[in-house]
Amino acid sequence: MLHTTKVALRARHEADVPVLQTELYDDVVTRSRADSRPWQPIAPGAAESPYAVAAPSEDAACFSVTTLPSGELAGEALLWGIDTHNRTAHLGISLRPAFRGRGLAREVVTLLCHYGFTVRGLHRLQVDTLAENLPMIATATRLGFTLEGTLRRSAWSYGAHRDEVVLGLLAEEWTAPGDVLSGPARPDR
């Protein structure tokens, strides 16, 4: 498990799936803005659910986000499009509505960077998000990501073409904060 003093990234548990499905996937507007694939109705517990517990893969690392010390499920985080030859990956997060606006996104992105650079030995991490997603852009830039470009009207999102931005961070630009820890999350830290 990877954690800071506020949040932990852990493997997805079966009990996480219905909560993530209901609060993140079934919110059509938010999901449509967070994923480049079109929203489709998926029954709870279906193997096609993006939150279904799956075996580890080389091209993605999916985590559940929990708060500390309570262990309450706060959302999901992932590295996707992991390219082991070029040592690159994309990162993404989605927090449940009740956990947004609490400063947890910074902690989650920090842990994903730590995982990508320190654990996986990647060279570059990238954030691809809608240009209107100002909270994610602010979080990424505060952590050292560089705004590399705007892809004009490249994303079809809930009824309109929208601009996307690309932000990148190289391993040599990453400064890991001292509060990233590995191993069991202990409330006394």
Score class of each variant (00 low, 15 high):
Asp188Leu: 08
Tyr25Val: 07
Thr84Val: 10
Leu143Asp: 05
Asp27Pro: 05
Val7Glu: 00
Leu24Ile: 12
Ala61Val: 09
Thr118Met: 09
Asp35Ile: 14
Glu76Tyr: 06
Gly71Ile: 09
Ala160Arg: 11
Asp27Tyr: 11
Arg152Lys: 10
Gly144Val: 02
Pro38Arg: 12
Val29His: 12
Glu148Tyr: 01
Val29Arg: 09
Arg153Ile: 00
Leu151Asn: 01
Arg96Lys: 08
Val53Ser: 02
Ala43Gln: 10
Arg106Pro: 00
Glu107Lys: 03
Pro38Leu: 12
Ser49His: 01
Leu134Tyr: 06
Gly149Trp: 05
Ser57Gln: 13
Thr84Gly: 03
Phe99Asn: 03
Arg87Trp: 01
Leu20Val: 04
Ala160Pro: 01
Arg142Asn: 07
Gly103Val: 09
Val119Cys: 07
Ser57Cys: 07
Ser94Gly: 14
Gly168Phe: 07
Gly71His: 05
Leu79Cys: 10
Ser182Met: 10
Leu2Cys: 03
Leu134Asn: 05
Ser70His: 09
Tyr158Ala: 13
Ser157Leu: 12
Thr141Val: 08
Leu147Trp: 04
Thr67Gln: 02
Ala105Asp: 09
Pro41Trp: 12
Glu107Ser: 14
Ala47Gln: 10
Val7Cys: 03
Leu143His: 04
Leu9Tyr: 04
Leu95Asn: 04
Gly81His: 11
Pro38Asp: 11
Val119Lys: 03
Asp59Trp: 07
Phe63Pro: 00
Arg162Thr: 02
Leu2Phe: 15
Ala61Ser: 04
Leu111Phe: 11
Leu20Asp: 05
Arg153Leu: 09
Leu24Met: 07
Thr139Glu: 01
Ala34Ser: 15
Gly81Ser: 15
Pro50Val: 10
Ser57Lys: 14
Thr118Tyr: 03
Ser36Ala: 11
Ser70Val: 06
Asn86Glu: 13
Asp128Lys: 04
Val53Lys: 03
His3Cys: 10
Pro50Asp: 05
Ala74Met: 14
Thr84Lys: 08
Thr30Gly: 02
Val127Glu: 03
Val127Tyr: 04
Glu172Asp: 15
Ala89Val: 13
Arg162Met: 12
Pro135Gly: 04
Gln21Trp: 15
Thr5Gln: 11
Leu143Thr: 08
Leu143Trp: 01
Glu164Leu: 15
Ala52Ser: 10
Ser157Tyr: 00
Asp163Val: 04
Leu2Val: 08
Glu148Ala: 15
Gly183Ile: 03
Leu130Asn: 05
Trp39Leu: 04
Val65Thr: 11
Pro41Tyr: 09
Leu170Thr: 08
Arg87Cys: 13
Leu122Ser: 07
Leu95Ala: 05
Gly71Met: 06
Asp26Asn: 14
Asp83Thr: 10
Leu169Met: 11
Val29Ala: 11
Gly183Asp: 03
Ala15Ile: 04
Asp83Arg: 06
Cys113Gly: 08
His3Tyr: 00
Ser154Asp: 14
His13Val: 07
Val165His: 02
Ala46Ile: 00
Gly75Ile: 09
Ala140Tyr: 04
Val108Cys: 07
Glu148Val: 06
Leu112Phe: 05
Pro44Ser: 06
Thr66Ile: 10
Ala98Arg: 15
Pro41Gln: 10
Arg96His: 03
Asp128Cys: 00
Ala171Thr: 13
Tyr158Asn: 15
Asp179Leu: 02
Gln21Lys: 01
Pro18Gly: 04
Ser94Glu: 13
Ala60Val: 15
Gly121Cys: 12
Ala185Asn: 02
Gln40Ala: 13
Val180His: 02
Ser94Val: 04
His123Gln: 08
Trp39Glu: 08
